[in-house]
């Protein structure tokens, strides 16, 4: 019995030693704030430097920007480590236990924030998309300009900067059109009249795509022209890669315009609007 009491008190003493946290005074709080501030400023500088440099190297910018989120998380990680170990003098095991308690406490009150943080880490490790990619995320589409601690910033084609919470990665499907490369497939549909010369139209569309100043063709990124017949018209579809995903829409416009200019020279007509006479059945 006495042995049991001794063991229990020894265990309690050890636990108390482990979880005993230092007194937090104003100086410690101030130091922690300064470190977080330095980390924030450092991140801003690093982000600015990487963004500026990567924009100078042309299409290779995506590879360089790949390191941005990793650097951000690392800087914040080092800052937190320094606060816990360097300022609060918490041992590694204590900080481990403390972060568990803190995580549970925050989890109840700030579930979304924690989910965003975890989402950010998943994005960095799993790379469903990266900075520079064009993605569909929920109802948003655009270029990823930043992956932050809480949210992913997406620059939409109509110049809106959308902050999509990182936890969307768990609940919504994400489609990355470029997946870490600068080139991106663009699908261009043109509808022509069924009586028009389809072979000639396909040749024109192919040449409009392959002569565009925005095109990128390689063995891995081929140019494909497809034809589909509908009851009253035919659809020509060009699947071509744009050399830089930022030119997606101008590429589409360039190919469409030049193809239609040539169609009109060659007598290829646009699909007509047909009205079906279905007699009394329609009433």
């Amino acid at each position: 019995m006495a042995d049991n009491n001794t063991t229990n008190s020894a265990i309690n003493g050890t636990i108390n030693n482990i979880i005993q946290l230092p007194t937090i005074d104003t100086g410690i709080i101030l130091n922690a704030i300064i470190i977080l501030l330095i980390a924030y400023v450092l991140i801003r500088i690093v982000t600015f430097a990487i963004t500026s440099f990567s924009e100078k190297v042309g299409v290779n910018r995506i590879t360089i920007k790949l390191f941005m989120p990793l650097l951000k998380f690392s800087i914040y990680g080092i800052a937190l480590y320094h606060i816990f170990i360097g300022i609060l003098n918490i041992s590694f095991f204590q900080s481990f236990v403390f972060s568990g308690f803190l995580g549970a406490a925050i989890g109840f009150g700030l579930q979304d924030l924690v989910a965003d943080l975890v989402g950010g880490m998943v994005i960095i490790l799993e790379k469903p998309y990266q900075v520079g990619d064009k993605i569909y995320m929920g109802e948003y589409y655009g270029e990823v300009t930043d992956i932050g601690i809480r949210a992913t910033k997406i620059f939409t084609p109509d110049a809106n900067l959308v902050s999509a919470p990182n936890n969307m990665i768990f609940t919504r499907a994400v489609a990355s059109a470029s997946a870490g490369t600068a080139e991106m497939m663009v699908v261009i549909d043109l509808y022509i009249d069924s009586d028009s010369d389809t072979v000639l139209a396909m040749k024109i569309l192919r040449e409009a795509a392959m002569t565009s100043k925005y095109v990128f063709v390689s063995k891995k990124s081929p140019l494909t022209i497809l034809l589909k017949d509908y009851p009253f018209y035919r659809r020509l579809q060009a699947k071509a890669y744009v050399n830089d995903l930022r030119y997606q829409f101008v590429f589409e416009s360039d190919v469409t315009k030049r193809a239609w200019d040539e169609f009109s020279k060659q007598g290829i007509k646009a699909a007509k609007v047909n009205i079906l006479d279905i007699g009394d059945k329609g009433k």
Binding site: V57, G58, V59, N60, A182, E183, K213, F216, S218, N243, D244
Partner: peptide
């Protein structure tokens, strides 16, 4: 031009 991917 290689940076812009205009020549390959």
């Amino acid at each position: 031009l290689k940076k812009l991917r205009m020549v390959w």
